[in-house]
Amino acid sequence: MYAIVDIAGKQFKVTKDQFVYAPYMAGEAGASVEFDNVLLIDNAGAIEVGAPTVAGAKVSGKILEHVQGDKVIVFKKKRRKGYKKKNGHRQDFTKVLIENIVK
């Protein structure tokens, strides 16, 4: 059984006991979260597609920790002008354990 869930504007294919690195969400480690925007559910080949969401479907999970992604280097340069700028960025993520998919 799997589901496609919309978490903070991004879609994830999730199954039970799977880890998902979702965009940063408020809450402490150990807190439980529930996602109501379930777009699709597949239960042993029986696929149910929502319009836009599946009615009565929920995905519950637990926040494990808040982490940062890999560093991305942003480098800007204009040739022959003496202009160089180097910057780095690390995106914040929340590691979520999917505990249950309910239809």
Rank of each mutant, 00 (worst) to 15 (best):
I63D: 05
G61A: 05
K10H: 06
D42G: 01
I63H: 09
M1T: 11
G9N: 09
I4C: 05
N43Y: 12
K76S: 08
I41W: 02
R90E: 01
A29N: 14
M25N: 01
L64V: 14
L39T: 03
K84I: 15
V54L: 08
I98M: 07
K85P: 08
G82N: 10
K77F: 15
A26C: 05
Q68L: 11
R79P: 07
V14I: 09
D17L: 01
Q18R: 06
E34A: 14
G88H: 04
A8Q: 13
K78A: 12
A55C: 00
A26R: 14
I4Y: 04
N43Q: 14
N87G: 06
K84F: 11
P52R: 10
T53G: 00
F93D: 01
G56K: 02
D70K: 15
K81G: 13
E65W: 07
V74W: 05
D36A: 15
D92C: 10
A8H: 07
P52G: 03
G50F: 06
K81P: 13
K13T: 12
Y83F: 15
D70Y: 08
M25D: 00
E65G: 02
G30F: 12
P52Q: 06
S32G: 13
V54P: 03
G30T: 11
V67D: 11
Y2R: 12
E28S: 15
V96R: 04
A57F: 02
G61Q: 03
A46L: 12
I63W: 10
A22H: 03
I41Q: 01
F93H: 10
K13R: 15
E28L: 14
I101A: 03
N87A: 14
V102P: 00
V38S: 06
I47G: 06
